[in-house]
Every structure is written in structure tokens, then in C-alpha cells.
Design a protein around this nucleic acid. Sequence first.
DNA 1: GCATTAACAGCCG
DNA 2: CGGCTGTTAATGC
Length: 224
Amino acid sequence: MIAPEELRAIASWSRDLSEAEFEEARRGISFRSYGKNASICHVGDRLESWTGVAEGLVKMATTSKSGKTATLAGLRAGAWFGEGTVIKAEPRRYELVALRDSRIALMRRSTFLWLFEHSAAFNRFLVHQFNERLAQFISLAETERTLDSTGRLARNLAWLFNPILYPDLDRTLTVSQEELGMLAGISRQMANQGLAKLASLGLIELGHGSVTIIDLERLARYEA
DNA sequence: GCATTAACAGCCG
DNA sequence: CGGCTGTTAATGC
């Protein structure tokens, strides 16, 4: 069972629930921790729970038949995912890796389905989330071929600041260049150069182990 | 060629 | 001190 303050802190959807729904959600959530580079689940796993990131940074990725792996989304604290798998009761279609020590919240399937059945607010959240993820995947399909490493870096960085997925708007994120490299599928050195380029264009500002977003719109649209 | 790994000095917390 | 950054050199596809 999760403390009320913590649930509100890591789950924006919980703030719109009725008191009864909120309590039901609390009772259905437990935690699990993963070390850096640990696999949270593989393709085909029957991870039965709806999943949230309480602390840390997680990469959601697929591997094509040719062996190339593409990041579907970087997930930071406050992100929730896996509803498709829970609703359809099918195995996961993607792989989840902790990019740093992370604490993961797991909501029992029965609790998720109860909220799905009873709470309009919960369903509203799910629809908005589906919309944003769909937009991300479309952008991935569109630009997969054309973006260079700096472009992929810009896109993955912009995803981490999606205002619908992460409504607690903070323009600065604590993230190392190595972690951003792992998200974009490039080396730390390339991430370093790409970030320097994005900073020189005035899209972001670099700190020591952190990035501040200056112009999210242009960052999301960055090409070549 | 371009990106990756390896290596290292410098700096920040 | 430990981790992150910025840069260069060597290596690989």
C-alpha cells in the first residue's frame, strides 16, 4: 500500500479521483526496485501489472528483426505505462530497461480494471495518455530514417518533457549525457556533441548532470 | 568517413 | 572522493 502523498506525487491521474477511487488505487499498488541496467521486462513477459516510475529513469524499446533497437519512450518519475498489455491481457511487446537505479510502482491488474470500470477521471487520463503516445509513435515512424544522432537525441529529450505525460512542469531534468545517449541509441561522446549543438541553437541549456529546456516546440521539431 | 570504444584531465557536488 | 563532462586518439563497420 502506498502513502497518499506519494501516490499524488508520482501519479497525476490520482489527483482527479474520488476519495473512494483513490483509496482503491492505494490498496492495489506495491513497489519494486531495479538496479542500473537491470531489465524490468522482456518482450513476451506476462508482467500483469500496470506500471509507474516512482524514481529513476527507464527506457521502453523494441528490437526489429534486423536487430536494431529503437527507443519508443524514455520514462521518468511520474510516467505510467503498460495499460495496453493489462487491458488486452497479452504479453508485453516491448522491452523495459532501468537506465539508473529505479523504483517501480506496480498496480494489480484487478485494481486497474476496477478503476477502468468505475472512474471517469481515470478513463479521461488514459485517453489523453493514449493520444500522446500515439503521436510519439507516429513521429517515430515518420522520422526513423531521416534523423541523425542529434535529431534522435532532440526527439527523445523532448519526449521527456511532454506536458501531458508529465504535468508537473519543471523545465530542468537531472539526467546525465550517458543516459540521454542510451535513450537516443548513441554513445556518450555523440550525446555530448549533440547536446552542445542543441544548446548552441538555444533550444536547451546544459548544467552539470542536468538539462534545462528553453524551447520545447523547436526541440521536438528539430531535424538534421 | 562517421560513429564507437578507450582513455584521461578537469570540474562539480 | 565519486561521478559527469569535454576532448582526443585508436579502432571498427
